[in-house]
Design a protein around this nucleic acid. Structure first.
Lengths: 355, 355
DNA sequence: TTCAATTTGTTCGTATGTATC
DNA sequence: GGATACATACGAACAAATTGA
């Protein structure tokens, strides 16, 4: 995003100010001190400070020092709502945003769209930019949701500025008390596992993502369904993987189970992508799907559609609508922050990957 | 009262521009030349130029020179760009907007998203709302592009306010001189017709939309390909239809051709939707596709993918990127409105509807 | 009041990187 | 590929304003 040294310094100081490390009208370190600290020339520091001055973050006093400016809070009803998503072209997102747009535009709001590329840095960057703009609220899909949120200050600042926000799809563990609208992943995991049990399966393997709230919740539902039907939970049948594992790890786990001669007749997968990889893997080692082993996905993505995978459907448009309605409720005060927790019921989509 | 050397240079250049000594978009002397002329260092010249750039008098082009900008009324730069599309969830749109987002966010801009639902009223309503907001530019996909633009006043008003805009996908007939970035439909029509000719077809029917710029251009490409290959153009083989005709008309035309006993072995269709309907229609009257008759589409939509229709692909992300780059060029003055006409090369996607 | 230290403001010189023609 | 021109960065010097001893 920013390659230049002065750009990095600008971001750093901005972050410090937004985090409240410098009070308004207090002096920041002198140019010489900063150039020492960052290991750059004084000219480079000056360029950064000049930029921040023009953006209204700082003001310099000749012979005296450079100070933190009182941020102009030109708040009011701009009728703009920020929508922050991880990726733009994700198969799942267009319909969600369509739902959001429908409700918001009906209520006279416009959408300010931002993407984080699913990185924390991207998210922090986005929010810092948004704080300098005039928005009435925010709908945000958190990045890498299972890792603890290290930039909660930014959310605190939004609270302080009275800008309400709603999490969608996932929510940071530490912020589950904040407003959120998401799929009931526990229920989804339960639903699809119950479906397999109803088909007669007893030994059901599972592949879940460990660094993701959704993965943990779906696993919870999987366990719940087993218990409800009097089937003992066998940890050896469950494989956990992380985002960085890419494609290999899940299949490795499954092969390990095969090698251990643990009999299983079905696999519950974290999502359609994994399910697709598993189907290919099973076919490669001579197992027939669904005749010998049933496989399920999650998300009802295009992949599930084209490969005929039985899966759990996101009520995408509904999710967008609910999120927008919740946010509007928060803005006009008709909904309290504590009550704004919505879980949407998932739907089972039967295809031909199970029997 | 300016004491600083760079201040004197700023005033000098300002005066020269205001006096008309430098024309708009002409190059001013290079930094080195100016530093020689004024007897100051290049840094001092740079500082002066930077100041003038920020005031909107000049714009610098890396590796090329520094130029006189078209003076704009200094509306606050909100760093917001409006993106107006017809529908949100269209199969084609996510990737286009992804391209737009990539370029814009790299340049520090945010996207303000609006939809028109492909209606003129929706478009007018959108633009009125946008005019009341603070935006630096607009990328717009026009609604129902062939009908003459009845609300040109709104565009004139944007011109007056100095807010640049770029049309994507299509462009109003009467506004083809305005900046636009779109697919080269003539080339697309030529490409797909040439493909059929290369496969050995000589009698090629065509179905085109009459009230749509794209329809007319695709027809033009169709004619061009025929002429280039020494095949006479036969108007009887071409069916024209209008938006209001819905699905029946195109097929009627084709049936008429069949009844007239005009032999043809291939059909070039306006888009994938028509191609799909034509394939169904031909099958219904006992013609085999592609064995007896080859059919082509246009747009590379999901429909073409699922039905295996040979078609023309939009370079979607590229289109978004180019549109964003063009708009940024217009904003900082490095591109003139007249030069901002971009046609993107289409790509042939071979599937199984031709032989 | 004066003086010295500190801090920002302005300018010069130089070097390297990178885009454009 | 080479020349040109802008972009970034470093180092140094002096000027001007402020502050406190």
């Amino acid at each position: 995003m920013v390659n230049s040294k002065h750009g990095l310094i600008v971001n750093d100081i901005k972050k410090a100010i937004n985090a409240g490390k410098y009070e308004v009208d207090t002096k920041i370190p002198s140019e010489n001190q900063l150039s020492d600290r960052y290991g750059v020339s004084r000219q480079t520091v000056r360029k950064a400070i000049l930029e921040l001055e023009q953006e209204g973050y700082l003001y310099a006093k000749h012979g005296s020092g450079t100070f933190v400016a009182r941020r102009r809070s030109k708040r009011g009803n701009s009728k703009n709502i920020a929508v922050v998503s991880t990726y733009m072209s994700d198969y799942i997102f267009p319909r969600v945003i369509q739902g959001i747009n429908q409700v918001l535009s009906d209520n006279g709001y416009s959408i300010l769209l931002k993407t984080t590329n699913n990185s924390r840095k991207g998210e922090a960057w986005c929010m810092e930019e948004l704080l300098s703009k005039n928005i009435d609220g925010m709908i945000i899909e958190p990045s890498q949701s299972a890792i603890s949120c290290q930039h909660q200050v930014l959310y605190d600042q939004m609270d302080m500025m009275g800008i309400p926000y709603v999490f969608i799809q996932g929510c940071y563990e530490a912020m589950l008390d904040r407003p959120h609208v998401m799929l009931d992943d526990v229920e989804g995991g339960r639903l699809i596992t119950r479906h397999l049990i109803a088909l007669g399966h007893r030994k059901i393997a599972g592949i879940f993502k460990a660094d993701d709230t959704q993965g943990i919740l779906r696993h919870k539902g999987y366990v719940k369904a087993l218990q409800e039907n009097g089937i003992e939970y066998d940890p050896d049948l469950v494989t956990w993987y992380h985002t960085k594992d890419k494609g290999e790890k899940p299949m490795e786990g499954l092969l390990r189970i095969c090698e251990l001669n643990l009999p299983f007749s079905a696999v519950v997968c974290y999502n359609d992508e994994i399910a697709s990889a598993v189907i290919n893997g099973l076919k490669a080692i001579g197992k027939k799907v669904p005749e010998e082993i049933s496989v399920t996905g999650f998300d009802n993505s295009l992949l599930a559609h084209s490969k005929g995978i039985t899966t759990i459907a996101h009520p995408q448009e509904e999710l967008g609508k609910k999120a927008a309605e919740t946010l509007i409720g928060l803005i006009n005060g008709s909904i309290s922050k504590k009550g704004a927790h919505v879980l949407l019921a998932p739907e089972l989509v039967e295809r031909k990957s199970c029997m």
